[in-house]
């Protein structure tokens, strides 16, 4: 009897490994463990045994049943896994395929991007972002900036005028916001004014009649050229990295005294000299200076009490340098082939 039971177990274990599908596995299980199965049949015989022996055989029968169940369970698990693999495999999709009909990303103009980056830098230092009209009065654009009508400095900036509007010009620089800001906010003052400017120049690869600048101004008691260097160094390092230095050299602007041109270490060659910086190691990116007392006065600020500096960055130039844009005309072209790259 015991031997029969052991045999039953061995038979199942031998058969279960040969089963190839779930259905046959179930049939096999029923064959052994089902109500009319082999184990049940063997158990029936058990009834005729003596108590003592029946107990012993019963234990063995239970062990055999358990072993069969474990073997069945193991095989069942294998089949479940296979089945899942098969059905999941059928759900394969090409994850590299683009979302058809999905919205493609648009773009923000590179000048806007660079401008906003600088705005954020300056607001983090407590600067106001000021604004002013593009169609500006001759007064704010020139006269109040120490450029009277007969001044040869007016030749430096060819100007657009408007029919039937006396004393109105398309602003030639964002410096026109200087006086407006001083009058509006008074001193002390920290402001930057980014914006669009216009000069009546023929357009080519390097010249555009419409371009962008970022003006800045700081006024307080005791502001010095040394402070100007400090602040502009921060800007230069923000733009071109920690190793960047600035170099100032004299340049005449009627609204500052002293007036300087500002250069930064060429970011391409790190100052060694290359094609971009025309072998000088320096890139000219801003104009600056200590605000001329006449300008402070026009702004309603007492030059004996306050001093300040002003600076102007060519935003358009910064953008062209940053991305290596070869033709300035792309910027105002509205050409999506250009714009979608940013």
């Amino acid at each position: 009897m015991k031997k029969d039971l052991e045999q039953l177990k061995d038979d199942f274990l031998a058969l279960v490994d040969k089963v190839t599908d779930r259905e046959s596995l179930e049939t096999l299980r029923n064959e052994f463990l089902g109500r009319k199965g082999k184990l049940k049949a063997a158990m029936k015989e058990m009834a005729q045994l003596a108590d003592e022996e029946r107990k012993a055989i019963g234990k063995i029968a239970n062990e055999v049943k358990e072993a069969i169940e474990v073997a069945y369970g193991g095989q069942e698990e294998t089949f479940k896994k296979l089945q899942r693999e098969e059905s999941m495999g059928k759900e394969w999709i090409d994850v590299t395929q683009p979302v058809i009909g999905g919205e493609s990303r648009g773009s923000i103009h590179p000048v806007t991007q660079v401008q906003q980056e600088l705005e954020d830098l300056f607001t983090s230092m407590g600067f106001i972002i000021a604004d002013g009209p593009e169609l500006e009065s001759d007064y704010y654009n020139f006269t109040a900036l120490n450029i009277p009508p007969t001044h040869p400095a007016r030749d430096m900036q060819d100007t657009f005028y408007v029919e039937g509007a006396d004393g109105v010009v398309m602003r030639t620089h964002t410096s026109s916001v200087q006086i407006r800001s001083m009058r509006r906010y008074g001193a002390p003052l920290r402001m930057v004014a980014p914006g669009r400017c216009f000069r009546n120049e023929a357009t080519d690869v390097r010249h555009e009649h419409t371009f962008h600048q970022l003006e800045g101004m700081m006024i307080d008691k005791g502001i010095s050229l040394s402070h100007m260097k400090g602040v502009l160094e921060i800007v230069a390092r923000h733009l071109y990295g920690e190793e960047t230095h600035i170099r100032l050299r004299p340049k005449f602007y009627p609204f500052v005294e002293p007036g300087v041109n500002g250069e930064v270490t060429c970011f391409l060659c790190k100052g060694d000299g290359c094609r971009l910086c025309k072998k000088t190691g320096w890139l000219e990116v801003f104009g600056a200076g200590m605000v001329h007392p006449n300008v402070l006065r026009e702004g309603g600020v007492d030059p004996d009490e306050y001093s300040g500096f002003a600076f102007g960055f060519g935003l358009t130039r910064l953008v062209m340098l940053k991305y290596g844009i070869d033709d300035i005309r792309h910027l105002e072209s509205g050409d999506l082939r250009f714009l979608k790259q940013f």
């Binding site: 648009g106 773009s107 923000i108 103009h109 000048v111 806007t112 593009e134 398309m170 669009r196 216009f198 419409t210 910027l331 105002e332 509205g334 999506l336 714009l339 979608k340």
Partner: peptide, 8 residues
Amino acid sequence: ASEVFQYA
């Protein structure tokens, strides 16, 4: 959408 700059 893409931001464009255009003349005044």
